[in-house]
């Protein structure tokens, strides 16, 4: 069950999508999300789909992995679609029992499904093709102007990197604790919601205690390796924009602009 968590997963590779500067990928993702929220017609959604498909093709990440990322949110997708179907009024299309479904409602529901699905697939593509360290490096550099406002940008990036580093370790630990509790007769599978939630306590307590102990030891180990915050730190991999980064950024900007203009034209 825990092995299914895809958050922050990274598929190493050597495609253009992998080699781009993480800052480029972050900015392209932001542009992609903006464009996605500006898309209001089948034409503009077509442009967005083209964008996504091109990115997926370039990155050579399988569609299977992308669709798998949708699994945890299918309920939200269906829920929003159904709500849209019920509440939006306009030209009647069909009437089933007491409910009349309108043409506009179907349209909005379809757009909603597309929007959420494409949003998630797009952002997953970013984490699939960018190693967490590069991602946090990129984020730190992009947000570094905020350091002037005394925002703890380095600290946040470091926290994110460490959190991502410890996800597999903590998952492994949770599995171990679960096995240990099962061996002593704990039951996690039966009973109602409340009972199951209660059964989680004997897992969470040791997990938290161990996480705190790990944090303490890690902090000591980091100090012993001369860590003293972001001041005066250098990097093994220096981020550099190349021609391909400017090209990809320009392309993403053009596509976003196109979608916005299409939206203004009512398409």
């Amino acid at each position: 069950m825990l092995k299914d968590i895809t958050l922050g997963q990274f598929f190493p590779g050597n495609t253009l999508a992998h080699r781009l500067d993480p800052r480029t990928k972050l900015m392209v993702t932001v542009l992609y999300i903006v464009a996605l929220f500006c898309a209001k017609s089948f034409v503009s959604y077509g442009v967005m789909a083209l964008w996504l498909v091109t990115a997926v093709q370039v990155s050579k990440v399988g569609y299977k992995a992308l669709v798998k990322g949708l699994k945890p949110v299918w309920f939200i997708i269906v829920f929003t679609a159904v709500l849209n179907l019920i509440y939006i009024k306009g030209t009647p299309l069909v009437t089933i029992w007491k409910f009349t479904i309108y043409r506009e409602a179907v349209e909005t529901a379809v757009f909603m499904i597309l929007r959420i699905a494409m949003l998630i697939m797009g952002t997953f593509l970013l984490t699939y093709t960018t190693s967490p360290i590069r991602l946090t490096d990129g984020l730190e550099t992009l947000l570094s102007p905020l350091k002037k406002l005394h925002a703890p940008v380095h600290e946040l990036a470091m926290m994110m990197a460490i959190a991502l580093r410890f996800i597999p370790t903590l998952i492994e630990e949770t599995d171990k604790i679960m096995s240990a509790q099962k061996a002593r007769g704990a039951d996690f599978e039966s009973g109602g919601l409340l009972q199951r939630a209660k059964a989680l306590i004997p897992i969470l307590v040791p997990l938290f205690i161990s996480a705190f102990r790990r944090a303490d030891e890690l902090a000591t180990a980091m100090e012993c390796r001369c860590y003293s915050g972001g001041e005066g730190r250098t990097k093994l991999h220096v981020l550099r924009f190349a021609a391909k980064d400017y090209l990809v950024l320009a392309l993403a900007a053009v596509l976003t602009a196109a979608v916005i203009v299409l939206g203004r034209m009512g398409l």
Partner: peptide
């Protein structure tokens, strides 16, 4: 504990 000294995922 080696797990608690390793900071990065590469």
């Amino acid at each position: 504990n080696p797990d608690n000294q390793i900071v990065a995922n590469v």
